[in-house]
Design a protein around this nucleic acid. Sequence first.
DNA 1: TGGAAGTTTTAGATTAAATCTAATCTGACA
DNA 2: TGTCAGATTAGATTTAATCTAAAACTTCCA
Lengths: 144, 144
Amino acid sequence: MDAKAIKKSLESGGLRCTPQRYAVMAFLMEHDIHPTAAEIFEAVNRADPRCSRATAYNNLRDLVQAGLVREVAVEGRAARFDAKVMRHHHFVCDICGRVEDMDWYDVPHPSAESLGKRILRQSELIFRGLCAKCAQWYASRSAS
Amino acid sequence: MDAKAIKKSLESGGLRCTPQRYAVMAFLMEHDIHPTAAEIFEAVNRADPRCSRATAYNNLRDLVQAGLVREVAVEGRAARFDAKVMRHHHFVCDICGRVEDMDWYDVPHPSAESLGKRILRQSELIFRGLCAKCAQWYASRSAS
DNA sequence: TGGAAGTTTTAGATTAAATCTAATCTGACA
DNA sequence: TGTCAGATTAGATTTAATCTAAAACTTCCA
């Protein structure tokens, strides 16, 4: 991954490029596995033990606020994160909680005014079901 | 609220109608405020202190599993719940976390097969922005 | 009616996720 | 070099939710 690109993207969000912040952003850009905050902290801390838990969480919060990283809340599980490279929808597996990317397409939505609300962002979709792996496991399980 | 209707709806989900379970379901059907689990427990426990925290949470879980209650995960906040009377979308306020109902409409989505996934449910939408109250507060704040 | 088997509930302990605290460090720039 | 806002830290704390093991109910059949 291009270090300059990461630095630039941090600065475009008004964030200074510190080693810890860089590590969090780089991890997210290099892995499209939608890790939880705990997984990000563990990976970053393993690579460089100077990064503490609070710092990993603080930086994650800052990156989300700056719009560089997207947070996906999943019912009954820890939140998951991904670098917001291109706009896309998500798929969440009911069994293993795995989050996968899905292609972006526009969804029609009511206008803000008609609802009495001031700001209204296009919602990203979260589809739900069983991922290929869990669907297979589930099928073999029901068969026996 | 019709007690018989609540009892029937519990039984339609394969759940026995115990006083505690009834209280949780009744609270959700009588209040469309999308309470958190903690708020539900407090309300139910206040009305009848025989219902413990674990019971409120257990029953909530059972109701969600039975498809009678919907859980809405919100980033950085406790999950919220509502009785699944009619299908609808949701709006979440970025500032106060308030959840509001929005009318249902179909959203086009890719078919399961094209994605290699076995089961794929229609996603309910979550719109995000500022609710009327917070939008007003925010505007008056920026003005000063 | 008795009582075995299953279900539900309970108080309190525990876990998990994330944030807070207050002290310390860093580095840009005067 | 000195200053100071911003960043980081370890560890404590908070919050949300679940677990545990015992007790209390229901059901239902003899």
